[in-house]
Structures are given as C-alpha cells and as structure tokens.
C-alpha cells in the first residue's frame, strides 16, 4: 500500500520532469524555455522529494528511527530548492534581457519603455 503511494508520487514527478525537458525543444526563446525547464522540473522534484519523505517517515514509524533523518534532510533540501530556484530563474531572465535578447514573438514589451526612461 505505502509502496503504491510512493510509486504514484514518483510517476507524477517523472512525468513533469519529462514535460520540462520537452519544453526545451518546443519553445522558441530563453524566456519561454525558462517557464518549462525551471518550473516544471521544480514541481516534478517536489513530488520526488515527497516520495522520499513518505518512504523515510514510513520506515521511521515502523521501528527504524534512523530513517527519520532521511525525511528531515529531504524537507530541508525541498525548502532550499523552493527558495533558490525562483532566484536563479529570475537572475537568468534578467541577465538575458540586459544582454539584449528580446522575447521572440512578444505581443507586448513593457520593459522596453522602462529602459528608455532610465537612459534619459
């Protein structure tokens, strides 16, 4: 039973990881690719971490307290990933825009006007 839950969590995680990789090929430029690769893969990783947490907690409650360490460490990794991942994605996007890569096929680009104001 507990193994079934873990397998389902792992499957959800891996499906989102695959979609994140596919988005690298589907999308045209760096910004849209960041949507897929940086975020879908985070969501997939959350589910894989959840599978590890459930695994550790299950063994900890069924008489092997040393497995609780596994869960605790995975929770710390999850929190750190959730804090650092948006920061990294934002840094990549900002660096790309500053180095002159315009979003491909953009309907509207408000940031262009901001730069003009700043140059004056």
């Amino acid at each position: 039973m507990i193994m079934l839950i873990i397998y389902i969590l792992l499957a959800i995680g891996i499906i989102f990881q695959i979609l994140g990789v596919l988005s690298l090929y589907r999308f045209p430029d760096v910004y849209t690719r960041l949507h897929g690769t940086a975020k879908c893969t985070t969501f997939g990783s959350i589910f894989i971490y959840l599978a590890v947490i459930v695994y550790g907690a299950w063994f900890a409650f069924s008489g092997n307290p040393e497995y609780a360490v596994l869960s605790i460490h995975t929770i710390i990794i999850m929190v750190l990933l959730l804090v650092t991942n948006p920061t990294g994605a934002h840094a990549i996007a900002r660096a790309a825009y500053r180095s002159g890569i315009m979003p491909k096929g953009a309907v509207v680009d408000m940031l262009k006007t901001k730069d003009k104001v700043a140059r004056k």
Binding site: L34, P86, A89, H90
Partner: peptide, 10 residues
Amino acid sequence: TLTPRTLAVD
C-alpha cells in the same frame, strides 16, 4: 517566478 507561466524579469 515560482508559479509557471509567469516569470519576474525586472
């Protein structure tokens, strides 16, 4: 940024 489909650029 953590929500997909929106990404804070600046």
